[in-house]
Computed example of a mutant assay.
Amino acid sequence: MLDILDVGTAPTYVPYLDGWALQRRIHADVVEHARPDTLLLLEHEAVYTAGKRTEAHERPVDGTPVIDVDRGGKITWHGPGQLVGYPIVRLAEPIDVVAHVRRLERLLIDALQQHGVDGYQVAGRSGVWVRRPLSEDKVAAIGVRVEKGVTMHGFAINCDNSLAGFRGIIPCGITDAGVTTVSEVIGADTSPTDLIGTVSAVFRAEFAREAVPA
């Protein structure tokens, strides 16, 4: 079973620290078996978040606040127009974090396919990628943490957000690829609200199958 919560999308943007606090509360409940696996879906106010591998020179120098977080990966941007998802789920033993990331990628690829985006995985790099005329660009980023067998953090799909926030950083520390949005890829405005139903259905179906006895 997977509980899916729409925490807030346009015109309601969730401050990053509020979303992070909610994650921690739900994570504690899932660890204690007090609630089922849960997926939070939301849009954040504009913010940079720096994962554990972020180096000093990778931080923006324009005075924009940066929040240090306990997920893996490097620095990225979140903000309006980006659908963020936090799957707080119990992983099977033995814990395989890479398998969890690959699973998230496959689910996002399935969801984006329904909106005309031909996404794919890239070996050695997390996220969902698309082929552009002059580059290979990331359309969805992934960064996770596992504590006491339960995941935190998750994914961010660029829907119709401005890409300006990425220009002052090296997104996820990758220098030889770019970022894009669903709207840019398909040539039609596609908001986080447009994707919530699809993403919810794909995740709900995946976890329903997982719950069926063999």
Rank of each mutant, 00 (worst) to 15 (best):
M1F: 09
D3C: 13
G8K: 00
V14A: 10
D18W: 10
G19C: 10
Q23T: 08
R25E: 15
D29M: 13
V30R: 06
V30M: 12
A34E: 13
E45D: 15
V47M: 15
A50R: 05
K52W: 11
T54P: 11
A56N: 11
A56T: 12
E58D: 13
D62G: 01
D62C: 09
V66D: 09
D68N: 13
D68E: 15
H78I: 01
Q82L: 04
L83S: 07
G85H: 04
I88E: 07
V89D: 05
R90D: 10
L91A: 00
E93S: 11
P94F: 08
R103Y: 06
R106M: 13
L108G: 03
D110Q: 14
A111I: 07
A111T: 08
Q114P: 00
Q114F: 02
G116Q: 00
Y120C: 11
Q121V: 13
Q121I: 06
G124E: 03
G124N: 03
R125G: 09
S126T: 08
S126Q: 08
R132E: 14
L134M: 13
D137I: 10
G143F: 04
R145E: 10
R145N: 06
K148P: 03
G149P: 04
V150Q: 04
F155W: 12
F155D: 09
C159Y: 02
S162P: 05
R167Y: 09
I170C: 12
I174K: 03
D176V: 06
V182E: 10
S183I: 01
G187K: 05
P192G: 05
T198K: 06
A201N: 13
V202Y: 11
F207Q: 04
F207W: 15
A211S: 15
